[in-house]
Design a binder for these strands. Structure first.
Length: 736
DNA sequence: CAGACAAGGCTTTTT
DNA sequence: GCCTTGTCTG
């Protein structure tokens, strides 16, 4: 099997695949087939009987990438490969810690806190320390703590180095936060890495176990690893020294969260015997796009240097459009998409719109919706961050880990059960005085004489109701537990009673959450359908992991999220000085270079066509002045593209600037109506038709896929785009 | 103690 | 402009 695969590789790729032993550094340019190399390599290791599946550790950047890698390895190897560890740093560390963390004095049912949970805990600590949330914002403290953890600065060191009053204040919050996290039996994202490292450092036997187990260690996107990740990999691989890292210093875009480019630049110093392989043939983009991207990134000083080349045609030039404002920009985007759809036959999911900041999506979404272009948004408000979803998850978390005070605080009076702020405060005080958890205090509410008898009874009722479900945690599946909790605590009720559209959406989100638990229960690979495992999976999921590239819709996402992906047509919006590069990065050369690498990443996502848009005026919500419009000049990056590769269209004058808006509107309608009616189907659904759905209400059809029983409709209900199988949905046609 | 209303902050990127 | 947080009233 792998023989055929090997023959399809180029010489460099084959060398990377066939070099089995010792350290390997693969410098893989954008689109050079590194995923293919990694998957072939893993399949081959097993085929050559160099390693059993469980002796391989592969680290990827997203869970989605991990899932795809596993799928492809299984295809190549022609078998299921259970027991192989593929995942992100965070998920792999969580897995190790579940088994070993008792050595560090935690329990294996620890909670994983996301940024929101962290901020709540910090807020609580600050209240306790009587710190004013206005002078010192919990959000910035969270930032500072996370930043220090990323740089592996412990509380002790931070305390010692705190030079002024402000730093000492932060140090005291940091200290209290760490103590609280331990009491809560909770770890934040950064802790997952740090505690693993801690474990390895303090417990040699544990480290040796993993060192001998993992004969082969492979790391993707190595340029974006931080110090802690670097040490984790180094420690695990130090016995067998079969470590293969793949990366591209030109695509290092996570310095701001502690990624250390030195990790990849210094690999040869760490492993002098390393084989270094450069993959420079690009299989993705046209020569024009590549030449332009090469020219842009060549302006960076800190790089190893490489030049990508391609066998593809030169392709169309990069189209640069100047627009009047963000509105005109969005209209232009719609225009381009429709043109590519109608004229070049590109499907919606062949196209992506990328931007520097999430805030830019709003204007774009607005126009896409009005232009009847189906789209999916990655990022922004994430599904698992929604209030109603977090509420249910908090209940589930407390079932698994009763020490999780952040979860308990969230649900103790939600839905309202008459346990108000004053009573909660007394409960907290009692817990602190007795040195017991908040949950325990709740169970023993009867002893808290400061709280009035009625409220004490309510507390005890609540604790007993929770206890009853906790007793079932190990006996019942995650799905059943979720149902139990939702029924017992009536978590859907308030939304069911309301007729407000946003409450319907909330209800829908709870149902979607239940659905995701059902899917988890069915698909669990290693028979672990426990609630604990589900919660772990969920807390480490990103919005990108929920993205379905096969869904017939245009993708909107940040440039950061787009790393590792590719699209035939790419539009980058907001190419303005101050926005991209972002003004905060203009002062430091290092930051500017990172912005340039980000642009490089964006450009090299495009296979065939690349559009760069900028607006002379853009409304932005900065600190003080609300909704001010700013005048912009073109991004310096546009000028860095040699003129041979671009077609730069500027507005002639201010007066002519407004005319295209009118024209575009007409063009939009004509071109699109034609396209829309062209894709008809036997059931007679047309794009643009209005339908009524039993639960979702009124919606408009934006996309049609498949036929007959498999006919799938993408329907926009309010703000929510749903993919529905026409056969099963009881759709009613509406005239308008 | 809960719900309604107003003020304030926010926007760089993510595990 | 929207969402979260704080304040007021019943």
């Amino acid at each position: 099997m792998t023989q055929d695969l090997l023959e399809n590789l180029n010489d460099k790729q084959r060398l990377a695949v066939e070099t089995d032993d010792g350290p390997i550094l693969v410098l893989a340019g954008a689109g050079s087939g590194k995923t293919r190399v990694l998957t072939c390599k893993i399949a081959r290791l097993m085929e050559q009987r160099k390693a059993k599946p469980w002796e391989i550790l592969a680290v990827t950047f997203t869970n989605k990438a991990a899932g795809e890698m596993r799928k492809r390895v299984e295809e190549f190897a022609g078998m299921m490969v259970d027991g192989m560890w593929i995942g992100t740093f965070h998920s792999i560390c969580a897995r190790i810690l579940r088994m070993e963390i008792d050595a560090l004095g935690y329990q294996s049912n620890f909670s994983i806190y996301d940024t929101d949970d962290q901020i709540r805990q910090i807020q609580y600590v600050m209240d306790k320390l009587n710190l004013n949330a206005k002078q010192l914002r919990p959000r910035s403290v969270q930032h500072i703590i996370s930043d220090n953890k990323n740089r592996m600065v412990s509380v002790d060191r931070y305390e010692q180095e705190a030079a002024n009053f402000g730093d000492r204040q932060i140090a005291s919050v940091y200290r209290e936060y760490e103590d609280a996290m331990r009491r809560n039996n909770a770890l934040d994202f950064d802790d997952l890495l740090l505690k693993t490292l801690d474990l390895f450092t303090r417990h040699d036997a544990v480290l040796r176990k993993y060192q001998s187990r993992f004969k082969y260690v492979l790391v993707d996107e190595y340029q974006d690893t931080n110090k802690a990740q670097y040490y984790i990999v180094k420690q695990i691989a130090s016995t067998h020294r079969n470590i293969c890292v793949v990366g591209d210093e030109d695509q290092s875009i996570y310095r701001w969260r502690g990624a250390d480019i030195e990790n990849i630049l210094g690999f040869e110093k760490d492993y002098p015997e390393a084989t270094v392989i450069r993959l420079e043939q690009n299989y993705r983009s046209t020569q024009n796009i590549l030449d332009a991207a090469n020219a842009v990134v060549a302006n960076n000083k800190k790089r190893l240097g490489k030049n990508l080349w391609s066998h593809k045609d030169s392709g169309p030039k990069i189209q640069i459009h100047q627009l009047v404002d963000e509105n005109a920009e969005a209209l232009q985007v719609v225009d381009i998409l429709k043109d590519q759809y109608v004229r070049n036959g590109h499907a919606y999911n062949d196209m992506a719109i990328l931007y520097r900041t999430n805030a830019q999506s709003r204007a774009l979404e607005d126009r896409l919706r009005r232009g009847n272009v189906p789209y999916t948004l990655v990022g922004g408000t994430k599904f698992y961050d929604r209030k109603e979803v977090k509420d249910v998850l908090a209940y589930l978390r407390i079932l698994v880990n009763q020490q999780d005070a952040v979860a308990l605080r969230r649900i103790v009076n939600y839905p309202s059960r008459g346990i108000g702020a004053t009573s909660q405060e007394r409960l907290e005080t009692h817990a602190a005085e007795q040195g017991i958890s908040l949950y325990e205090a709740l169970q023993r509410a009867a002893e808290i004489t400061t709280i009035n008898a009625g409220t004490r009874a309510k507390m005890q009722n609540f604790a007993e109701a929770l206890d009853a479900i906790v007793a079932d945690v190990d006996k019942v599946s995650a799905y059943e537990l979720a149902h139990l909790v939702i029924d017992r605590f009536r978590l859907k009720e308030q939304y069911q009673m309301s007729s407000a559209i946003e409450d319907e959406t909330r209800l829908e989100n709870i149902n979607e959450l239940l659905n995701s638990i059902a899917v988890f229960t069915e698909q669990a690979r290693d028979d672990d359908v426990s609630l604990q495992r589900y919660l772990e999976d969920v807390s480490l999921l990103t919005d990108l992991d929920r993205w379905d590239p096969g869904f017939s819709a245009v993708t909107l996402m940040t440039l950061h999220s787009a790393k590792g992906l590719e699209f035939p047509v790419v539009i980058i919006a907001g190419m303005e000085e101050g926005l991209f590069p972002l003004f905060r990065s203009l002062e430091r050369e290092d930051d500017l270079e990172e912005e340039r690498r980000l642009f490089y990443v964006g450009m090299t996502r495009a296979e065939d066509a690349l559009y760069l848009l900028w607006a002379g005026q853009r409304r932005r919500f900065t600190g003080d002045g609300s909704g001010m419009s700013y005048r912009n000049t073109a991004s310096r990056f546009l000028a860095e593209i040699p003129s041979d590769f671009k077609n730069d269209r500027r507005l002639d004058s201010f007066a002519s600037g407004y005319r295209p808006r009118q024209r575009q509107r007409f063009k939009e309608r004509d071109a699109f109506t034609a396209a829309a009616t062209a894709i008809d189907n036997e059931a007679g659904y047309k794009i643009g038709d209005w339908v009524q759905h039993d639960t979702f209400g009124r919606g408009q059809i934006l996309g049609i896929e498949g036929s007959g029983v498999g006919l799938k409709l993408s329907i926009l209900f309010g703000k929510k785009l749903k993919k529905i199988i026409a056969e099963y949905a009881n759709l009613e046609r509406l005239d308008k």
